[in-house]
């Protein structure tokens, strides 16, 4: 298997606070990596560096063979213009904790916005594929609703459909169920599980240990800006080797 995501010695500071202190991670095509860790461990920041919402201070990240945010020519790295970064991002789907749907646009308009404006798809074709995606997340009857008329779980499913509309090679989920009422978590996780079963490459930051056990190929445990350990769900969740992992799991399980 080839590496879809390749992260090499990534460092990131917010002022004097070191958020990422040398991250190395590889995610293969078709792999589902679940990132666990306590609050402030840097897992969301790591996810955001992968589509360049955060710029790294040192190290590099490549997605599907191309460097994120830079172009390499001989022995120099040239920073990309914003336009090129935006183009790179269309290959990476990102799902936010707070959904961030556009409240003034209908569900359908939310989904077709990026395909029409960023990929220049014909509107008719974008609408057809949006309708297919809505059916896939079980919301085919909500196309003309506004986000505020939907429950949190429905909004997050729309957000997933919106990310899928760009047909990304990689999907990033930033705590997709943390803002949801407990009874709505299942419907969103089911959609993500379904995507995983179809071989979508994804990195999921979450607190849902059960979900990690069921869906993950790799579980990554982060603490204080470093990857403490990584391995199969059985290795990390059932037989953790590090004290930090054990302490974390004993609190959340």
């Amino acid at each position: 298997m080839t590496a879809m995501v390749d992260i090499r010695s990534v460092h990131k500071n917010f002022g004097s606070l070191e958020v990422l202190r040398g991250i190395d991670l590889e995610v293969s095509t078709g792999e589902v990596a679940v990132v666990l860790g306590p609050s402030g461990s840097g897992k969301s920041t790591l996810l955001r560096t992968i589509n360049h919402l955060e710029k790294v201070d040192s190290g590099w990240i490549s997605v599907a063979g191309s460097l994120v945010g830079y172009r390499r020519r001989n022995d120099k790295l040239y920073e990309l213009r914003e336009r090129d970064i935006l183009k790179q991002r269309t290959r990476i789907g990102f799902v936010f904790q707070n959904f961030n749907l556009f409240p003034h646009l209908t569900v359908l308009e939310n989904i077709i916005e990026a395909p029409v404006s960023a990929l220049r798809r014909p509107r008719k074709q974008a609408v057809e594929s949006a309708e297919r995606l809505l059916a896939r997340v079980g919301l085919e009857d909500k196309a003309s609703a506004y986000p505020r008329q939907l429950s949190g779980g429905q909004q997050q499913r729309v957000a997933i459909a919106r990310a899928l509309a760009l047909e990304p090679e990689l999907l990033l989920f930033d705590e997709p169920t943390s803002a949801l009422d407990p009874e709505l978590v299942g419907e969103v996780l089911d959609v993500i599980k379904d995507l995983a079963d179809q071989g979508t490459t994804m990195i999921v930051v979450t607190h849902e240990i059960g979900f990690a056990r069921e869906v993950a190929d790799t579980v990554v445990f982060m603490d204080e800006g470093r990857i403490v350990e990584q391995g199969t769900p059985t290795e990390v969740l059932d037989h953790p080797r590090h004290e930090r992992t054990k302490a974390f799991l004993s609190k959340v399980l």
């Binding site: 991002r89 990102f94 916005e113 919106r162």
Partner: peptide, 23 residues
Amino acid sequence: VDTGQLEAAAALGIPRLRQLRRI
């Protein structure tokens, strides 16, 4: 306007002017 709106628009790769005009 909530910063999450800009982040979402940026994450979707919507061109800059379009982000302003549409979002």
